[in-house]
């Protein structure tokens, strides 16, 4: 069955707008009848990813594919990339600046949270080229 597709551009220079895509997708999914734990898991994993795009990657693209039984989330950026993915996936590890921490993020929980709330999580990254993440949340 063909998926319903939603696409978002996440700006890298406006922290106040980080979360616009997650808020919009949550609202659309709600209207489509998605509720409870799956809706929350999609919202949190996408929101964490969106924050990462805004504060680490200089912005990026989000694509959500909604199927009857699952939602696939793709986050793509051309940012600095991640040198050590296994280290970045450890809870508490963060490369965030003090400025980002003062905004309530950068506790080293972004990628771990995405992995925790998604049913499937895939990440590819190359230093100097960018990062590509795919998450699947079952409905």
């Amino acid at each position: 069955m063909e998926a319903i597709k939603f696409s978002y551009n996440v700006p890298g220079d406006d922290f106040t707008r980080a979360g616009d895509a997650s808020t919009d997708l949550k609202s659309k999914l709600k209207k489509m009848g998605v509720t409870g734990a799956p809706l929350r898991n999609i919202s949190i994993s996408l929101y964490e990813g969106e924050i990462n795009l805004a504060i680490h990657a200089g912005g990026g693209e989000i694509t959500a594919l909604v199927y009857p039984d699952k939602v696939e989330l793709y986050l793509d950026d051309n940012g600095p990339g991640i040198a050590d993915i296994s280290l970045a996936l450890q809870e508490g590890y963060s490369s965030a600046t003090e400025e980002i921490r003062s905004l309530g993020f950068g506790a080293g929980m972004g990628l771990p949270n995405m992995k925790k709330y998604a049913d499937e999580f895939y990440i590819e990254s190359e230093v100097g080229k960018g990062t590509h993440i795919k998450m699947v949340v079952n409905l």
């Binding site: 922290f15 929350r40 964490e48």
Partner: peptide, 30 residues
């Protein structure tokens, strides 16, 4: 720390915070 709220909190109805930016409301919404 909104990251901690997203990581450890579930089924909480109220968020008390001294942080003041739009991400507080977005976190509460998520």
């Amino acid at each position: 720390m909104m990251s901690d709220v997203l990581a450890y909190v579930k089924d909480q109805a109220v968020l008390l915070t001294g942080l003041n930016n739009p991400q507080v409301i977005r976190t509460a919404d998520m």
